[in-house]
Design a protein around this nucleic acid. Structure first.
Lengths: 186, 186
DNA sequence: CCGCTCATGTAACTGGTTACATGATTTA
DNA sequence: TAAATCATGTAACCAGTTACATGAGCGG
C-alpha cells in the first residue's frame, strides 16, 4: 500500500469505472478514442497495462461477464480505489492544474513570424476552418442529452467555452494580420 | 537527413533560438521554468539532451561566447533548422492542434461527483482562488510591454482569453452547486 | 565568505506511443 | 462471406521527469 499519487490518466480510468459503472478495458479505451478532447490516444498499449497496474494495487477489481455468447472482464473501483480517487481530487489544487492550460495552436501563433506573410495568412485561415469543424463536434456533444450526469454536461460546457475563447483568439490574430475569415458553413 | 517530425518541445526550442537570437541552453531552460503556461518542466534533463539532438541533426549550431569572464555556448538555428521549423508550422493543422486542448481542471470537474457535496463546494472555492492568482500573473504578463514582438503579445492575449473562459466556466460550476465565489482581491 | 544565479551535464526511471498480433462475433 | 467491431494483449521505443552532481562568478 504505497499510496502514491495517481497519474492524470490513471485517475481518469478509475473515475470512469466509478462513474459509468463496471466497464471493460475496451469500453474505457473507446471513451478516450472518441473523446472530443484528444488528450490520450486510448491505445491498447496504454490502457491494458494501466488496468493491470490498478488491479495489482487493489484500486479496481474485475469480474467476468457474459454478454450474449462473449466473455469479457468488467472492471470497477474498490473501496480503496474510491479513496484514492478522492485523495486525487482533494484540495489543494496545484499550480499546473489552475494555471494556463497548454494549447498547441497558441504555441504556433507565438512563432508565426517564421513564416512569410502569405503563409501566415494561410495558416490562420486554415486553422480557423479546422477549429470550426472541431467546434461543431463539441457543440453537438454539448447539446446531445447525455445520460452521463450533470457533471459531464458541465465538462462539455467547459470544453465549449474553451473552444469559443480560442475562436475569439484566432479572430484577433486574423484581425492583426488583416485576414478575412470565412464564415462557418451554416 | 531523416526529416522526422519535430516534437512540440523541440520545435519550441528551435523557434525560441530563432526568435530570441542566440541563446544558451540555460536561457532556454529559464523560458520554460518561468513560463506562465507550465507545459514543460524546463529541467536540465530535458533541455540539454534535446539541444544535443538538434545539434547532431544539424538543425542548430553552437558558438562559444564570453560574457565578462565566463564562457558559454550559445545556440542558433541553421538554415536547415529554419526549414524544419517552417515545415513544422506548415498546414494542414492536425486534429489534436485544432481540437479542444486538455484542461486538468475540467477533468476534475467531470468527476466532482465522487466527492460529497461539502467537499465539492470547497473544491470549487479553492479552485477559484487559485485561478485568480494565476489570472493575475497572466494579466501582468499580458500588460507588461514585452520586446518579444507582436506575436508574443498575441500569444499572451490567447493565454489571457483562455484563463478568462475558465473563470466563466468555474462560475457556471459554482452556480450549479450554489457556491458563492469570493471576489478577487482588488 | 555565504548564498544565489549562471551554466552544464548525467543516470535511472516511468509512462505513454506506435505497431504488431490474435481471434471471436456481428453486421452489411 | 467480407468487413467492421469487440476484446485482449505484447514489445520496442522514446521523450520527458526527477534527482544528483559539479563548478564558476557575482552581490551583499
Amino acid at each position: 500500500m504505497t499510496k502514491r499519487m495517481l497519474s492524470e490518466i490513471e485517475a481518469c480510468v478509475l473515475a470512469l469505472a466509478w462513474a459509468d459503472g463496471p466497464l471493460t478495458a475496451y469500453a474505457i479505451r473507446k471513451v478516450f478514442l472518441k473523446s472530443p478532447t484528444p488528450q490520450w490516444s486510448g491505445s491498447a498499449g496504454t490502457v491494458y497495462p494501466l488496468i493491470e497496474r490498478l488491479l495489482s494495487e487493489g484500486l479496481i477489481r474485475s469480474k467476468a461477464i457474459a454478454t450474449g455468447k462473449r466473455e469479457a472482464q468488467q472492471v470497477s473501483p474498490t473501496a480503496a480505489g474510491i479513496r484514492a480517487l478522492k485523495r486525487w481530487m482533494a484540495i489543494p489544487i496545484s499550480d499546473w492544474v489552475a494555471g494556463v492550460p497548454p494549447d498547441p495552436l497558441r504555441t504556433r501563433i507565438r512563432f508565426l513570424a517564421v513564416l512569410p506573410k502569405g503563409e501566415q495568412r494561410a495558416f490562420v485561415s486554415n486553422a480557423w476552418l479546422q477549429m470550426q469543424i472541431q467546434l461543431l463536434a463539441v457543440e453537438k456533444d454539448c447539446e446531445t442529452p447525455n445520460a452521463a450526469g450533470p457533471f459531464y454536461d458541465l465538462m462539455a460546457r467547459g470544453a465549449l467555452l474553451s473552444m469559443r475563447s480560442r475562436c475569439v483568439f484566432l479572430k484577433e490574430v486574423a484581425h492583426a494580420l488583416g485576414v478575412a475569415l470565412e464564415l462557418p458553413p451554416t
